[in-house]
Nucleic acid binder design. Structure first.
Lengths: 147, 147
DNA sequence: CTTCTTTGCATGGTATATCATGGGATTTTT
DNA sequence: AAAAATCCCATGATATACCATGCAAAGAAG
């Protein structure tokens, strides 16, 4: 999956790139979106993945931990299903758009089994940051990468 | 899933968000509500889940704890059925509203198989607190969660 | 290799259905 | 009889489904 730029109209509607749609569509016509915990962006995935993530997090914590209970609040409280219509669009909420500082343009970034939606400028910076990070760690990669 | 803000009218009536209703409606037109033991909020779920939640709670406590019985008694003693009408509203009691400090606005917070109802200001603080907490403990979470 | 055609996708606009909410009216309880 | 709870209808707002246009990439024909 590569990076795709789509417009967000005045109502907050945005087309889910067809490649992204195709992957989800095998399962359903719905995706789940939530505010990223790490970055000013929206994250999206299939519902099954969210539940897996939730249970993974649970098992990675002390079973008796109160944090577990709080996590379910945070995850399920923030996440929402978004069904896309026949033309493949979803209607994003104010909360999500605000968190990602998105107004009229959105950048879709594939992340394996999930994806992120960014404000274009923010993504540009983030990408540069990631590249710099990789370059810094490059010596430790040796020539295994072959690049 | 999701967080939804609804009004509580002068009679104490409040609309159960339609998404929540849809899930319950497959089984019945009733939900069960009780005062949360951990937070100043109301908890709600489908009736079938109440017993399971109670037993979950038991296993999350010291098996030989004396308080175990007391806690389940507390929940079962407090819990009550609330049927929603054709427009999807329930009438909350003074006891519940007071416990959650709710007057004219209620915030529904999804929690997977159950949900919570909060006073808006309280939830705002609670959410901020949880996010800070999670962020602080983040390194220990590793990337198992992937969020 | 160039040009024309076709197909799929993003995007704008509009209509329809759904939902939250206010206000009675009717019933039940004490 | 008074108060509280339940039911029902009306309305405005909003989300969702649907239709239509335009663009751009891919493929076929000359």
């Amino acid at each position: 999956m590569d990076t795709i730029i789509n417009k967000v109209d005045t109502k907050g509607r945005v087309s889910l790139p067809s490649d992204y749609r195709a992957i989800v569509k095998e399962l359903s016509t719905e995706i789940v979106c939530y505010r990223s915990l790490n970055s000013p962006c929206i994250e999206g995935c299939a519902e099954e993945l969210l539940e897996k993530i939730a249970s993974d997090m649970e098992t990675s914590l002390d079973f008796f931990s109160q944090t577990q209970d709080e996590l379910t609040n945070l995850i399920f409280g923030d996440a929402r299903r978004f069904s896309f219509d026949s033309t493949g669009r979803i209607l994003l909420t104010e909360k999500l758009l605000k968190h990602a500082q998105i107004t009229d343009t959105a950048v879709f970034v594939g992340k394996g089994r999930k994806f992120q939606i960014w404000n274009p400028e923010n993504w540009e910076k983030e990408e540069a940051r990631i590249r710099a990070e990789i370059f810094k760690n490059r010596p430790s990669l040796g020539n295994k990468g072959g690049m």
